[in-house]
Computed example of a mutant assay.
Amino acid sequence: MLARLFPDRFVPVLLATILLASLLPVRGAAVPVAQGISTAAIVLLFFLNGVRLPRDEVLHGIRNWKLQGGAFAFCFGAMALLGACAHALAALFLPATLALGFLFLGILPSTVQSATAASSMAGGNVAASVVAAALLNLAGVILSPLLFALLAGSAGEIHGAAALRIVAILLLPFIAGQLVQRWLRPWVVAHRGLATLMDRSAIATAVYVAFSAAVVGGIWHLLDAREIAIVFGAVAILLALAFGGAWMLGRLLALARADRITLLFSGAQKSLAVGAPLAATLFPSATAGMVLLPILVYHMAQLILSAWIAPALSDD
């Protein structure tokens, strides 16, 4: 029954992380230590992403300009606009910081592993999915903060220190991974399960530290049941628009079915692996957890939805 409710095993892990942060948040002198561990985990995550991304496949995948351009436009164009609209509407009913989380959700890049896995399960173009996710994540490290600053106005102002942290924690480890890819990628490919465990541990650590600060700041006292229900309802609407819109875009572009499936998952999914460290970089610790709440809900919901619809697409 649990496998049916949570087809992706990472969903219960995220739920347990939120529960742990709610019951046993990091406090006092332990906060700097936890933040240091979280930063180290994020650096490792982006280093592994750099090692994993094959440059030759990227160059080959770029040639499929219709698919890659469609995924890029939908992820950073249509989804960013949907996030901005959701932010404007949510601000009427939710605290400003929480409403800002919907805009933050909209500007994030796609997932890597889960989008590729769902595309493979559904009979999509797996090679193109790997390239699309990689390109979107690489662009997202630079583009997501800029889009957020552009759309959020004064609330999204990025200071020099934050920009340097983005470069140091996200971009430089990725570049380092690319530089040593020749020697380390065979090991990462051969130990794919261990690399995935390290990825997900890094994400869970970042979420735990960020959400702990939100709990200490009183997130569960600031939000009532009605506001939490609004968050879930808004995420459900965004999911429907994202998955439906990405599928329709593939039809408008007259893509082959396998490419439409790749566009669906690469365009509609959003990356917590980028979202959690980016939130920790852009926002004060007490604010980051509140901003992360919409992407946390969206990320878990997209994993469940993708695992449900991928087998149905493969049967068509």
Score class of each variant (00 low, 15 high):
residue 69 G to M: 11
residue 92 L to R: 15
residue 165 R to W: 07
residue 70 G to D: 08
residue 188 V to T: 00
residue 61 G to Y: 09
residue 171 L to S: 14
residue 186 P to T: 12
residue 72 F to N: 04
residue 72 F to L: 10
residue 186 P to R: 05
residue 157 E to F: 14
residue 59 L to V: 00
residue 136 L to A: 03
residue 152 A to N: 00
residue 162 A to G: 15
residue 180 V to T: 11
residue 180 V to L: 15
residue 172 L to D: 02
residue 103 L to T: 00
residue 127 A to H: 11
residue 159 H to A: 11
residue 97 T to E: 14
residue 147 L to D: 06
residue 93 F to I: 01
residue 176 A to H: 03
residue 125 N to H: 13
residue 125 N to A: 15
residue 77 G to L: 10
residue 60 H to R: 12
residue 139 A to S: 06
residue 113 Q to N: 12
residue 56 D to I: 04
residue 128 A to V: 00
residue 100 L to T: 00
residue 126 V to W: 15
residue 121 M to C: 02
residue 87 H to T: 14
residue 120 S to H: 08
residue 186 P to L: 08
residue 97 T to W: 12
residue 69 G to H: 13
residue 124 G to F: 14
residue 187 W to S: 01
residue 83 G to H: 11
residue 138 L to H: 09
residue 114 S to G: 07
residue 59 L to H: 03
residue 68 Q to I: 09
residue 107 I to P: 04
residue 124 G to N: 06
residue 160 G to A: 15
residue 146 L to M: 13
residue 60 H to K: 12
residue 138 L to Y: 04
residue 95 P to C: 11
residue 179 L to C: 02
residue 198 M to H: 03
residue 178 Q to T: 05
residue 62 I to D: 08
residue 104 F to I: 04
residue 163 A to R: 09
residue 134 A to R: 04
residue 145 P to Y: 10
residue 87 H to I: 12
residue 173 P to F: 05
residue 65 W to G: 00
residue 137 N to D: 05
residue 189 V to Y: 11
residue 102 F to A: 10
residue 91 A to W: 02
residue 169 I to P: 00
residue 108 L to Q: 12
residue 126 V to C: 11
residue 196 T to L: 15
residue 120 S to Y: 07
residue 79 M to G: 07
residue 169 I to A: 13
residue 83 G to L: 06
residue 132 A to R: 02
residue 192 R to F: 15
residue 155 A to Y: 06
residue 65 W to C: 06
residue 151 L to P: 08
residue 155 A to P: 01
residue 185 R to Q: 13
residue 121 M to Q: 12
residue 77 G to P: 03
residue 98 L to W: 14
residue 85 C to R: 01
residue 196 T to H: 14
residue 97 T to D: 15
residue 151 L to M: 13
